[in-house]
Amino acid sequence: MDTRAVTRAHVLITAQLAIGAAALGACGGYLVAGPAAAVLSGVVTGVGAWGGSILVRRRVFADLGQAERDANVQGYAEGLSQGVLLGIAMYQAAVFPLTGPAGVSGEERLARRTIAYRIAADDGLPHTVRTAAAAALEAIDHGQDRQGAQDAVQALHAAVDEQRCP
């Protein structure tokens, strides 16, 4: 996040609020007691609005910083979940190739298995995705039941979708 842009936006919004408050204060002062009261009321209201906005600036930036950190953590978890799904799907394709038993070499299958396990072991994965990934890897490792492995990968896909769009 570009803090200079956020600071500039906050200053511009603060200025607009202060000018609007000063104009409203001036109109109210003019209606109540005339031109002298309008000037005094406008100045006091504008300075008060400006000062109040300056006092809340720290809270505004703290909230923006926390929102950015939360978005980064959530985005990392979503990306990692998608990576796990892709890695396990690639491993499943190596164990159950569409071209027949001679479609994938043993080295390639082992490489895809290693990658899938490494991605699934990352600490940034949400618990539900990690559990579904472990079940999918177990089903694929047995290598006997194509439908059971497909169901486990579908459950992993559902867990990834649930994590992304609760």
Score class of each variant (00 low, 15 high):
1 M>Y: 08
1 M>K: 10
2 D>K: 11
4 R>L: 13
5 A>I: 10
7 T>R: 09
10 H>M: 09
11 V>H: 08
11 V>K: 08
14 T>S: 13
15 A>T: 11
17 L>P: 01
18 A>D: 07
18 A>H: 06
20 G>Y: 07
23 A>R: 04
24 L>D: 03
25 G>F: 02
25 G>L: 05
27 C>R: 10
32 V>M: 08
34 G>K: 07
34 G>T: 04
35 P>H: 07
40 L>K: 11
40 L>S: 15
42 G>P: 07
43 V>Y: 04
46 G>P: 10
46 G>N: 09
47 V>I: 15
47 V>K: 03
50 W>F: 15
51 G>Y: 12
52 G>T: 06
52 G>L: 13
53 S>H: 11
53 S>M: 13
54 I>E: 14
55 L>C: 04
59 R>K: 14
59 R>D: 15
65 G>E: 15
68 E>H: 12
68 E>N: 06
70 D>A: 12
71 A>K: 12
72 N>E: 13
73 V>Y: 06
73 V>M: 05
76 Y>T: 14
77 A>I: 00
77 A>F: 02
77 A>P: 02
79 G>A: 09
81 S>Y: 01
81 S>K: 02
82 Q>E: 15
82 Q>A: 09
83 G>Y: 01
84 V>H: 00
85 L>K: 01
86 L>D: 11
88 I>V: 13
89 A>D: 09
90 M>A: 15
90 M>W: 07
91 Y>S: 03
91 Y>N: 02
92 Q>N: 09
94 A>M: 05
97 P>Y: 02
99 T>W: 05
99 T>P: 01
101 P>L: 05
101 P>T: 06
102 A>W: 10
104 V>K: 05
104 V>P: 05
105 S>L: 04
106 G>A: 13
107 E>N: 05
107 E>W: 03
111 A>D: 11
111 A>N: 06
112 R>V: 00
114 T>K: 14
116 A>C: 07
120 A>T: 00
124 G>A: 06
125 L>G: 00
125 L>A: 01
127 H>E: 13
127 H>W: 04
128 T>H: 01
129 V>D: 00
131 T>D: 13
131 T>M: 10
132 A>K: 08
134 A>E: 11
134 A>T: 13
136 A>L: 02
138 E>R: 14
139 A>K: 02
140 I>V: 14
141 D>Q: 12
142 H>S: 12
143 G>C: 13
144 Q>E: 15
145 D>T: 06
145 D>A: 14
146 R>Q: 08
148 G>V: 03
153 V>L: 12
155 A>K: 06
156 L>N: 03
158 A>V: 10
158 A>Y: 04
158 A>F: 08
159 A>K: 03
164 R>L: 08
